[in-house]
Write a protein that binds this DNA or RNA. Sequence first.
DNA 1: TTTCTTAGCGTATTTTTTACGCTAAGTTTG
DNA 2: CAAACTTAGCGTAAAAAATACGCTAAGAAA
Lengths: 238, 238
Amino acid sequence: MQTNHSISVDCAVFGFDGRSLKCLLIKRDGQDLKLPGSLISDEEDIPSAAYRVLEEMTGLRDIFLKELSVFSNPSRVGDKDLEWINHFYNVHTTRVVTVAYYALVKLDNKIMSHTREKEALWKDVALITTLAMDHKDILNKALSMLSRDMTHSPIAFELLPRKFTIRELADLYKAVLGVEIDNRNFRKKIIGCGYILPTGEKEKGVAHKPAEYYIFDKNRYRREEKKIQKLNFINWNE
Amino acid sequence: MQTNHSISVDCAVFGFDGRSLKCLLIKRDGQDLKLPGSLISDEEDIPSAAYRVLEEMTGLRDIFLKELSVFSNPSRVGDKDLEWINHFYNVHTTRVVTVAYYALVKLDNKIMSHTREKEALWKDVALITTLAMDHKDILNKALSMLSRDMTHSPIAFELLPRKFTIRELADLYKAVLGVEIDNRNFRKKIIGCGYILPTGEKEKGVAHKPAEYYIFDKNRYRREEKKIQKLNFINWNE
DNA sequence: TTTCTTAGCGTATTTTTTACGCTAAGTTTG
DNA sequence: CAAACTTAGCGTAAAAAATACGCTAAGAAA
């Protein structure tokens, strides 16, 4: 029985620029686009490898990261891709199984200059048509997982600056989930939740009534979370 | 760079006997208990390996199966475990990364006799204290994923016979989620959903008013699912 | 025959969601 | 400089969903 394989990680890194969802892509050999990734080494566990890739690409250490699933189709890496991998990593492997993650980052100046330096690019996810290997499949799965997660847990704030307006939050939901949102009811929901707090600061230089900045209070969220004892626990349409 | 690893699958297989949730365990060397699993071979992808293990253990092909996550701690397999693996599979490996799944089965006579033959045992999950390697961690993660999934999608029926009473369904939820359920409101919710249909048949030989048997209509569920356009899409406490 | 248990229907209350009117505070336009 | 335009942000009413709980029915067991 032959049972030795190479294992890699691949990360779909998402950012939000206020208009649309972006994904971080890198050019392989200056040609095909692919997700950032790496083979894992003997000493590290797989999440560590993912964090290593993320730090390399973004310069950041504390990044929201979640495992998607394993992609293991024996033919997912074609001969050409395999050649590139063996050359790039100086190994001899015939099959690579990858563990896919998605990550969420705030698109501030720091990260933008770092990724520019790495010659990576932030591409609007709606405009990504093909990627190397099965990376388009990974991206698709990441997008559907992200949609699901954004409705079930407060991870939207990983994509927004620390201080954000309620409009920015709504725009993010519109962009990712593709839904229409009623401004007035959305506000009520957000303000009513108890852990999204006004800062007293306001927008400047916008062509309309300036909105107040809010912050997400993680500790308060956790406290509220514990209080809730949902009896209305079954909801099979989510 | 050394990058070759062995990959395995491990499955937490759950069943429900009407009283409590059971997990399928096998004895290694007639001693330690572990989850069913296997190394994967070069030709198969990982889900196929999981189905192979499940068919071997249960005799069944169409089983609900879902990936949990990858367990990759370099020291998750101790020296003793490694020795057993190398001997059992006739390989030479120093590290095994495992992809964990959970599976749901209906505990009917057929499966019970098959697992008995395989000398596997169905143990009440509440009574499982230790398992080989990191299999207890895998089990814990499987249990929390199962709880989550059972509240968000209609997978409870994978654990029940085709025809079930509303009480049996409620008992399953009580057992898995550890919640109290009001019989009257639960019925309303179940019957109101539109895809759990009465069969006309009734229980026999119970020491109380016999209940009607219901079936879960998968096609009707999918149709209803499409109809729903949830605007109330954000619920961060689920 | 009484007691016990669960089935199964109904009603009233509370909570949550949805729809939508309205004023406020800025910038842009003419 | 006033009118037009855009988004902020408050409020109210209606609809829908969740919850609490009373009650009778149908069987077995005592």
